[in-house]
Design a protein around this nucleic acid. Structure first.
Lengths: 231, 231
DNA sequence: AAACTTCAACTTGTATACAAGTTTTTATAA
DNA sequence: TTATAAAAACTTGTATACAAGTTGAAGTTT
């Protein structure tokens, strides 16, 4: 017996596959092929593709075809810039208003990260899990300062940036630096020192750009819009 | 002879009408009624509504109906917070790197704003135009610091914030304060003074929240999600 | 009169046939 | 062989019929 999918399920599956790079940037999506995969007619598939287009995850060219959008390295950098700006202010406010409980939660978040790097049960290091725990520290600041929507905004909407982070996580594994940066963040929180927040966050958030570096236009150049292209 | 609309045109028209509050938050949209208005079948209309839902401009409830989303005052405030954060950094970078030409362009932007307030040809003051000229100063900073995508991001995506700004523009008319704030911005640019950017931008960007004030939960309470509602 | 049941009139969801444009292939001519 | 042109095989776009769920009103029963 085959699974029966509805519209929203299909959307979530395809969105997830695109954001996780299971479906590669630039790949052609055929409506017909998706119909067969999910055992539905073209109507719900088209509905899903329209929604994915609105999120800039696919590009529908009339009478030609549907393609998964390429990543835009320029946009990635602008989004990181935005994240540095927002997160600098959020962390500053967090530090200013942090209760002892908040500080303890931050300690706990760092502790989880070191555990994820060197699991106590000698299990394998799981990059996906490490990445997830990394984010929990940042999420703490937003939630604690009552900015949950901004955090969702950062995590979800930006198609290029989200996929860039996944690519970074899959290809480069610079765990020590990440832990070092988080340790320094905790120090700022504990000492309520706000002067070097921006420098540290710049260092931390542009990490992916440094790590991937020229790979963007070499190994992975097929995933990105060519530089100086007007498309 | 009737005009023939295609899918994208219908989308732009409805999006524009929702964002300009011509179609009020909370209003029910009937597919059938839209079919008659644009003289097309349900297929393209449904396509448009799916896309509008992805932008959080409408909410499609299966087998019940489609409703224009209400504004979320909490989200509005978080988006303003984000804009203060980003724009503070952008303006700082603009001031640091501004050429004499950039400063002159900023002077010109302010000059346009005062002209829009008191048109030389004794024409009527156009609120829409005034609002547009206001934005050109901000746009200048983003374009000059090579952050055009961030500016588009601020202008377009956020459904609640965009409509809140329109409501502010339609209902309150505090032109003098806006001009005063812009004049002060120009002074910071000319003197390359970066210390009070955040305070000034906070003052300027939260203006709508101050001006509309309690109207949000009185005159216009039908436009907003009720406080403490989980929806 | 009040409560329940049934049914008709809505709503959106899906499948399908066909329209319209693009691309590739194939056949034809130079 | 090469160039050109026609046609077949793709793609997405649209209209329509019907399916499925919700709502509210009418009718019936208590």
């Amino acid at each position: 017996m085959d699974t029966i999918y509805n519209c929203n399920e299909i959307f979530r599956i395809l969105e997830s596959e695109i954001l996780s790079l299971s479906i590669a940037p630039g790949q052609v999506l055929s409506e017909h092929q998706l119909c067969e995969r999910f055992s539905v007619s073209r109507t719900p598939i088209r509905s899903v593709l329209q929604r994915l287009q609105e999120k800039e995850l696919v590009n529908i060219v009339p009478y030609k075809g549907t393609v998964v959008t390429l990543l835009d390295f320029d946009i990635v950098n602008q989004m990181i810039y935005q994240r540095v700006a927002v997160e600098t202010m959020v962390l500053r406010d967090f530090i200013r208003n942090s209760s002892p409980l908040d500080v303890e939660l931050a300690r706990h978040a760092l502790s989880n990260l070191t555990d994820a790097y060197a699991p106590k049960d000698n299990g394998a290091l799981n990059p996906d899990y490490f990445f997830k725990v990394d984010l929990q520290m940042h999420e703490l600041w937003f939630k604690s300062t009552r900015k949950p929507y901004l955090w969702e905004n950062i995590r979800r909407q930006q198609s290029s940036y989200t996929r860039f982070c996944v690519l970074d996580m899959l290809e480069t594994r610079n765990y020590e630096h990440v832990i070092k940066e988080h340790t320094e963040m905790l120090r700022l929180i504990e000492t309520k020192e706000t002067s070097s927040i921006e420098d540290l966050l710049t260092q931390h958030l542009y990490g992916g750009v440094r790590r991937l570096g020229s790979m963007v236009f070499n190994e992975f150049k097929d995933y990105f819009i060519p530089p100086e292209s007007t498309l």
